[in-house]
Design a protein around this nucleic acid. Sequence first.
DNA 1: GCAAAAGTGTTCAAAATACACCCATGC
DNA 2: GCATGGGTGTATTTTGAACACTTTTGC
Lengths: 246, 246
Amino acid sequence: MKKDNFDYYYKEEDIHPGFSVDCVIFSFHKRKLQVLLRKFALEDYWSLLGGFMYNHEDSEQAAYRILEHHTGTRNMFLRQFHLFSDPTRTDMEQNKNYINRNASSEEEGKWLLRRFITMGYYALVKYDNVKLSAAPDESLKWYDIQKLPHLQSDHENIIKTALKTIRAMLPVIPIGYELLPEKFTMTELRKIYEIIMEKEFDRRNFQRKILSEGSVVQLDETVSGKTYNPPILYSFRAPDMDKELL
Amino acid sequence: MKKDNFDYYYKEEDIHPGFSVDCVIFSFHKRKLQVLLRKFALEDYWSLLGGFMYNHEDSEQAAYRILEHHTGTRNMFLRQFHLFSDPTRTDMEQNKNYINRNASSEEEGKWLLRRFITMGYYALVKYDNVKLSAAPDESLKWYDIQKLPHLQSDHENIIKTALKTIRAMLPVIPIGYELLPEKFTMTELRKIYEIIMEKEFDRRNFQRKILSEGSVVQLDETVSGKTYNPPILYSFRAPDMDKELL
DNA sequence: GCAAAAGTGTTCAAAATACACCCATGC
DNA sequence: GCATGGGTGTATTTTGAACACTTTTGC
């Protein structure tokens, strides 16, 4: 078993059998909604960041551990959204590659060829807070949600389902608070809503509605570096954490 | 292994390991929201209807199979809502009882003493469509959601979480269509909303709003058997199935 | 005669929507 | 000079909320 401190490995006896966790990690950067993906050196397809659940963990803890491992923070909005349990969802070819990379014997990794169901989580992170940390044989990359690469097994479906979930929950998720830096423009906030809802919003009505909700306040600052008609900056007043989503 | 055609049993090699499905089955009867529960002869606590997922099934199929087995129908609204994965959630005492009842040797049922995570499903059924079908050593009973008996392990929490989910999704779930018989009164429909939301609605405003949505139509009938001021009957025009919940 | 259940409309407030003009800059 | 991005306000429509009185029967 080849390993170093940039990665970790799972032993069959330490993890819950036939079950994994996959995280759809969203951020907002350059006016695009981005998803964090990974690809191992010898593989052809990108995949979500996922892993297994240790015997002492619940699935949330497993998801937080995986997230922290790759992004350097566990301070993020995280929710489970769907269990993917189609018996044909696992692509055995890919797991074989994984075994070849990580297991010292074929016997040792055999458990990875069995059926896995996976719990989908979505995470909302602030782009600037993330310090990507990848193993040597691993690439991590943010992808524009609208320009996804070819993805492993059912991961494209998982991402699509995450997006649908966020869309349905948009009114109750503090989406801007989770995705934007401390100071932001109203256009940035609106862009997030527009990308997720796949429709445009009237600039003026959007602004009025957001401000009337009371959680966003106008600052006395404008975006610097632009001398012409610079956009005003806004900030969230208090975490919208008081609402229970479930 | 003692078994008859009223029940079925699971063999370790046929099912996905460490994973179960539990169904919170809701119906509406006598102006109360009811949940279907089961108790085995030798047990002290009631529990949700649950079971395991066969290797050839996905979790939805397992849930439908379990539902059909006990209610005689699989024609119902069914949605997954939460994965319960706390490592301490399984109450081993209860599983020991189960093994004593069903396994011919301690060895055979040993797998049941390991950790299980469970996917919670909620189902909406029409009370009159259900023909309860229990094994000889099993009781099935509808319980008023507001008067639940003592429940096994974390099943009370599962029910509470199901209710919260339905509450959050109420505007998009065709709840009345799923729970009410073909003809119903406006008060019955309103009661469902009031119980789930744990608040009362103004009779007149509720009626206006429902009718303005267009899916409920007034019939030319009133409730028979009452000669005084009998309530008008209503019916759903078309399934609200056009909306995709996720 | 009084409590309980059901029928019926209006008014007001709040929220969502639609929409137009001005300004400064980069090209 | 014109396209781009950003600032600002008003009028209309729609939706939600509040609210009262009458009828019939059971007890």
